[in-house]
Design a protein around this nucleic acid. Structure first.
Lengths: 328, 328
DNA sequence: TTGTATGCGTTATCAG
DNA sequence: CTGATAACGCATACAA
């Protein structure tokens, strides 16, 4: 009933009339004699015993924590990811130790070390830092970026998604395409959105333009770009693929300000599958990342540490969703 | 340099030529002789020593974790809150142990216990469960709901916000107001949004209507309500205050479908201050909760455990922001 | 002031 | 298969 002070294995052992080690075995699922098993279980029930995670971690050098390292929770993609990861970890009896970095290299490294010191049983991270050092011996899964050999990277099928976006625009009648992107200057999986886009355009023999800038470049660069391509109230492009929904959102706003209609004059497709209020309408037509599946996969991978030969890159298929910025 | 195996205090003590206890004192900021201090610090630096959080927690029955218990991270208000809490805790050298409940009573209680077992140094939670039992001896702060005496509750000024919304609508020329709300059937601070709204209407001698339903009621109830109040293409109300931005978002959509213009025919104000993509435009005109300040306050309160006589309710002032669904 | 010794609750290693 | 016992790394009361 009352876990007044704190019931220990010793208490359980005394109550059950067995030795300490036997209790430990029962708790850890190691086979013991049938009657002993029973008596220990009863005692545990009766006393309301719970293992002490700290003591267990201290002794075994391994906690039930998973370190989750993300840039922030303001971007809907990240918060959705954290939401799914936390749930999935719970189902697997693990706790989530969350660290937010704003993509700051020093913080990323510091949280990596803190995770190690907390003896986490795994790390799931989203970082572009090429210098990042991964603690040895801790199963680690990276999202959207390859961290080198031996460390699995989970990502949506960025190439396929970029290609899909271009094809959808063409299906909807677009003849002059553009790709817009702002993102990390450091190489990562999301770069393939551009590659897929280009491939689809090339295959179709359709002209295209790519305008890519690094994070940190003010958005006004795109405003200038669009303005430069506006002639007599007509844009040089009738279909735009933006590397993220956020960018698509801003571009749409800019086009409207320029007096253009979306999707009548220009069609836009974003990437991510972000939704208003987390589960209402899409902000725009978009390539949807299957966040839930990606989270599940990350957890699967990070928990099956011993699995031999983990693939270094796992791409999850994406889907297209119409969200009002295209004519379908 | 290399923290190859795991440097312990014993190693530091040997390196510095002092006793174990002395190292412990230095690490914990307890005064020791000046030369000792120096030698220990040098040794720590040289060996790259870090305290083992598990051992410390086991010994002192207190970890540096703060249990954070929230419904989910999909709702922008919750994810914003988690974002701010995590940062603020980091600044104060604490880690965030995040638990998501979907407002499920059993989970809320389970995570409360898990937090206790993890020896957290505090709990910050958002739950409406009136039966929830708080572990004794753990500083706890509740958001948006009073958990009883001795436990601080942090909330925005819901009454003031409701009143402000009504006044803003009136300032913008509204003569026939309505309050719409869907939320927990369990009493909590957000109920005061309605009270404040009513007060402002009463004070101004303006007629109003309140339509409140419990969570779980399908949104179609509001569609029916609005349809019932539509006569000859004209709504009985020209100003609507919705208890959340999400509801305001849906209501606006419904009104547009009914052929009404927002804000020309009907003006709408929501509550929360939710923003597209976390920091872009507001979804609608809204009463903005100062999430950052609230998070900071929660952390302040939960960490100053010994503070005598903590107020049981702390209300943070809100502000109004125009977001396109009003005529200002 | 500094050093020593004990125990926090577990796990794991050995004898029985 | 079971039961005593030694760590795990740290904090702290107590002795020097």
């Amino acid at each position: 009933m009352a876990d007044s002070k704190s019931i220990t294995m010793k208490d359980v052992a005394r109550e059950a009339g067995v030795a300490l080690g036997t209790v430990s075995k029962v708790v850890n699922g190691i086979p013991v004699g049938k009657t002993y098993q029973r008596r220990v279980e009863d005692a545990i029930e009766k006393l309301g015993y719970h293992v002490n995670p700290q003591a267990r971690a201290l002794r075994s050098s391994r906690s039930n924590f998973i370190g989750v390292i993300l840039p922030n929770l303001r971007n809907p993609f990240f918060s959705r990811l954290a939401d799914c990861l936390c749930r999935e970890l719970s189902h697997r009896s693990h706790e989530m130790l969350l660290f937010l970095t704003e993509s700051n290299f020093d913080l990323e490294q510091a949280y990596m070390l803190m995770s190690e010191q907390q003896m986490v049983s795994g790390i799931i991270c989203l970082t572009y830092n090429p210098e990042l050092r991964i603690p040895k011996g801790i199963p680690t899964v990276s999202i959207d970026r390859s961290l080198g050999p031996g460390i699995a990277c989970v990502a949506s099928d960025n190439f396929g998604g970029g290609s899909l976006a271009a094809r959808k625009l063409m299906e909807n009648g677009c003849k002059r395409l553009a790709f817009l992107r702002t993102g990390s200057s450091l190489p990562n999986e999301t770069d393939k959105r551009r590659d897929g886009f280009i491939r689809a355009c090339t295959d179709a023999g359709i002209p295209y333009h790519c305008e890519c800038v690094d994070d940190g470049t003010p958005y006004s660069a795109f405003e200038a770009f669009l303005a430069a391509h506006l002639h007599d109230g007509r844009l040089d492009f009738d279909g735009i693929f933006c590397a993220t929904d956020l960018l698509a959102y801003k571009v749409r706003r800019t086009l409207l300000q320029m007096g253009l209609r979306v999707p009548e004059d220009v069609q836009i497709i974003g990437y991510d599958g972000a939704q208003c209020f987390g589960d209402e309408d899409y902000y725009c037509s978009t390539i949807v990342q299957p966040v839930e599946e990606m989270a599940r996969l990350c957890v699967d991978l990070v928990l099956q540490s011993r699995a031999r030969s983990i693939p270094c890159l796992l791409q999850i298929p994406v889907t297209y969703a119409s969200g009002g910025s295209t004519r379908d």
